[in-house]
Amino acid sequence: MSLSDDGGYGGDSHRGPETGQTRTRLPDSDGDGYGTARRSRTGLSSRNLITIVGVIVLLLAAIAFANRGGSGNSESPSDDSAKDAGAARPTAPTGTKPVTGKNDGIAKGFPKTQQGAESAAANYAVALSSGGMYKSAQRDAIVGAVYTPSAATARKESLRKVYTDPKFLGRIGLKADGSAPSGMTFVSRANPAGTKLEKFEGTTATVAVWYSSLFGLAGQGSQNPVAESWYTSTMQLQWVNGDWKLADFTQKAGPAPVGGDQTAASAKDMSKAVQGFGGFTYAR
């Protein structure tokens, strides 16, 4: 409720007892020769009561107005560490600026807080779902940027086997070197919808990231047109060398919303959109 809604400013029309400096001649008043009205105790009491009520209404309106700012889902970064990690806390902006550092195009320098862990997880989900994972040099750079040093060493070899498998690449329509056929645009992009902190213990954190994924080949005659899917990745993070790094993660499908009734874009429009719209640095 705003002050203008409850009539709180209406109290200005009741200014309490008169000062006695102004004399008013009333036709039928009982007064002295100047026609001064004899003051009524009942009138004074009524005016005082109205004034008191007006003050109370103003006070209640001010309290209600002040409480509006704290009734939303946003939370102050300073209170972040005090929150129960298991409580339901929808992703909402906090006002804290995104990180400014970059490591091979991937955000770095996340704060050692719950919010920092959630931001790191969202950005790492995007990096690990990008088209760069299908190119050897880019894949190694991404893995080195998001994983802990020990996990990165093990992951580089296992991921190399997956992303260079001819059968796997052929199934999704890519050439043996991970590139798209002539006239096609390969699309692999994650779009986080929210994060959820499941566990936080100072130097370790578990964060679930819910996101949609655009994947496929955009182009005339594509056998694997770009389609949308939904996933949830649960990431195990560790605080290493002044930043959050990924130790391991698991992925599951969904939850997926009901599909809309929009008409699918043409291959040309989809290619233009992917090439023309960049990504984000995600911050909690």
Rank of each mutant, 00 (worst) to 15 (best):
T203L: 04
V207F: 01
A88G: 04
D12A: 15
A82Y: 02
D5T: 11
A37S: 15
S119K: 01
K97H: 05
L49P: 14
A267K: 12
K135L: 10
G278V: 09
L60S: 13
P225A: 07
A107V: 07
K196R: 08
Y231K: 11
D104R: 08
L59D: 10
G278A: 13
V187Y: 06
P166G: 03
P90V: 05
S182Y: 09
L60A: 14
P255N: 08
P77Q: 11
R160W: 07
F186H: 06
A180R: 04
A137K: 09
A37D: 13
M133W: 00
S136N: 13
A88W: 15
G16C: 04
V226Q: 08
I52P: 08
G16Y: 05
G173A: 07
K252W: 13
V55F: 15
G216I: 06
S40Y: 07
G259I: 12
E157K: 12
R155M: 09
R189H: 11
G11I: 02
Q223R: 14
R171F: 15
R47T: 11
R189M: 03
L128W: 08
D177Y: 03
D80N: 01
G33W: 15
G72D: 13
K272E: 14
N103S: 01
R15V: 10
Q236Y: 04
N241T: 05
T281P: 07
V162W: 09
T22A: 10
V57C: 11
R89W: 07
S46G: 05
K112P: 01
N224G: 07
A85Q: 04
N48R: 13
E157P: 00
T185C: 06
G11E: 02
A152D: 08
